[in-house]
Design a protein around this nucleic acid. Structure first.
Length: 143
RNA sequence: UCUAUCAGCCAGGCCAUCGUUCUCCUACAGGAGGAAGGAAAGUCCGGACAGCAAAGGGCAACACACCGGUUAACGGCCGGUCCCGGUGAUACGGGGAGAUAGUGCCACAGAAAAUAACCGUCCCGCUGUUGAUGUUAUUGUUUUUGUUUACAAAAACAGCGGGAUAAGGGUGAAAACGUGAGGUAAAUGCUCACGAUUAUUAGGGGUAACCUUAAUAGUGGGUAUACCUUGUGUGCUGUAAUGCCAUGUACACCAACGCCUGAGAGCGGCCCGUUCGAUGUGCCGGGUUAAACCGGCGCAGCGUUGGAGGGUAGGCAGCAAGAUCAUAACAGUAAUGUUAUGGCCAGAUAAAUGAUGGCCACCCCGAAUUUCGGGGCCACAGAAUCCGGCUUAUGGCUGAUAGAUUUU
RNA sequence: GGCUGCGUAGCUCAAUUGAAUAGAGCAUUUGACUACGGAUCAAAAGGUUUUAGGUUUGAAUCCUAACGCGGUCA
């Protein structure tokens, strides 16, 4: 049986520390794939010096998701958007895993900036697009 | 069938794949089990629990207000009662201390908005004018008649003073019980009849609010959702409360004791009373992940002894077995309570419950009436310490009553 | 999670010790002035006082509930 990819998104793979998120918003770069706005940061330390970042054991991509309460006043809508984004990320992030693990660590934060409730298909497509752009970015940095 | 009002119920079920979170097991591959609501919402009330050294008294402030019951508690709920609206109907909806404790307010209009004032009406007295009529005296003339003067004076008018009035006075939301009769100088519940209404007393019913009968005394405008008075209740702040752990750093850190003085501070509104009382404190800049900390300026008593103290980022507790849930029986009109049996039912912290598919049930449409095909499977909406209510949002179903329409 | 304040013309604000017609400035429209425009002058229109109940003879104002928008504590 060819190693089946486990599409997981546990606690380890999400941004949970308030401090880390504040730092990300302060120093991170951003790109925008409407209706998503993506804020990200690469940590420079080579993986060998800090705790070993082996793809199987320790995840090296951390992600967070949010939707503004200015655009969506109801908690139900915000939860729905975050869940859809999480689901799309969960199914597609494996494409990034290998390139990133060779390079360092990545922290990503997705902000939904649209003003209407999206369909799942739209979120899925846009997430795929962002991942492509990330891969491109990593390749440029190498070169 | 539709509409209106009221009351009650439900918020699909099962299976599979990939994921999330918590707990347990484990051979660390994984496996098993639990995982949003009737409103989780608004934060409008009431509690539990915690802190404020202790939580004492008074005042203030706030809330509530027919009666009884219910409860841990409530401003909630249940039952009753009176008033108003409303109906075929005690179906239904709304309201309820005090205006006779006091103060304030009631625009415009109106005589007047609560004192009964003003106009007007009536009575008495005084003064003045006119003066029917009467009496007496004087003067002139011989007398009579007549004239003049003085006095008295019915009545009328005017003025002043005193008193009686609330019947009348175009208004207004509201005008000092209403209608009729008698009575009076003129009038008035002044008296009488009928009616309305308030209070007290007595009898009857009811735990009570209240109902009812009789007697007596009244008829004092409205507004307390103006201030207020009376009664009852509440100390204040809130789980981001609060307690504990531990990294690293700096030291005018902390604790105890003593002396002069009593600045000041606390008891989260104020006072009394009481307690604390000095290496402190205010501002600005730097520093730290954060706090400790450093420097400057201002105000300000010190000393001795001891060893840990303060504080935040993070973690743990608080934090999931309870005014608990389900079923049954009993008590009660009911809210609710008691007993028995069984169950354990979210616990995250940038914050878990999602994505996809199938079947059944339900609804709609078409064929057709056994059944088949297609579509829908929703609305409002997401726990953050936990409970009891209230309010608001919202889909469907059922029942009761009334009305309308159609068919028989 | 708690506390607290506000909502008036298209905009910025008055009127908040209840009193009948809700006022001012800017903006808008029309007219005058000008060759034209601006400025200026004159006039007009524009309000269910956020919504729904209640108290009152009478509510922008008082009371209750809802909706919306801020501020603040940690």
């Amino acid at each position: 049986m060819e190693q089946q990819i486990r599409y997981t998104l546990g606690k380890e793979e999400r941004l949970k520390s308030r401090k880390a998120i504040e730092q990300l918003f302060k120093e991170g770069k951003s790109l925008s794939v409407f209706p998503l706005r993506v804020i990200y940061i690469f940590s420079k330390e080579p993986p060998s010096l800090t705790e070993p970042c082996v793809p199987v054991n320790k995840p090296c991509i951390k992600a967070g998701f949010t939707a503004s309460s200015r655009n969506f006043k109801k908690a139900v809508d915000r939860n729905r958007i975050k869940r859809l984004m999480r689901e799309a990320w969960r199914l597609q992030k494996h494409a990034l895993q290998l390139p990133v693990s060779q390079h360092g660590e990545l922290a990503v934060f997705f902000v939904y900036v649209g003003k209407e409730l999206p369909e799942y298909e739209l979120i899925f497509e846009k997430t795929a697009l962002t991942i492509k752009r990330f891969i491109k970015l990593i390749n440029e940095n190498k070169g």
